[in-house]
Amino acid sequence: MSYLIADQLRGGYGGADILNGCSLSVDKGEVAVIVGPNGAGKSTAMKALLGMLDLREGSVTLGGKDITHMSPQDRVGQGIAFVPQTHNVFAGMTVEENLEMGAFLRNDDITGTMEQIYDLFPILKEKRRQNAGELSGGQRQQVAVGRAMMTQPSVLMLDEPTAGVSPIVMDELFDRILEVKQQGIAVLMVEQNAAQALNIADKGYVLVSGANKHTGSGEELLADPVVRRTFLGG
């Protein structure tokens, strides 16, 4: 049994269903990547896990506990952290304040966690008094991940973390994500850069029209000629 399980999700934003029986799961210390063509419902699936979507059918369980009907805020309290694709930092606040806000729900001492984040992203320590809005795109993504990590989550979800950053920054970011995974956190991300993402993935899901089309380990999917031809550009 995986730690986070989404089973047979169906639903949308009030209109036609966007998710048509999609199932996902990710365990602690694992990276799961969702790829697929535009409009396949990748981000929607992630929103469903966060509770920002009306589900008609299906269930979401976290560590064996049914959280299908829990509000997004409560899920944050339960250990799910989310990094949105855009507007994912408090631009007018310093890096350090961004991290503090990430830990808003915690009442214990957060200095240790903050040090861990600074170890993970050394550049942030250097820029901790600077406003997040003044940083480069890659550094901002690091702030965004750092903020999410401040809750000491058990699940970290990222929506296209490498959108708009250079390939070098992308590689670095993926390295960091692997480090996060090694801390025993379940990582689930949606990615456009499918090939690179599947490279670091323990598990991959190819979504088409809101349903699972292919599932397997990252290596398997990368080796699958159909997947390669259709989704990875040959």
């Binding site: 944050v76 989310f82 507007h87 408090f90 007018g92 606040m93 808003f104 903020r147």
Partner: peptide, 20 residues
Amino acid sequence: GKAMRAFSDNEDLALLSGIN
């Protein structure tokens, strides 16, 4: 006070951070 600034800066992210 910082939570108020965060809310003013980016409401969605403030909600994701658990700010009430």
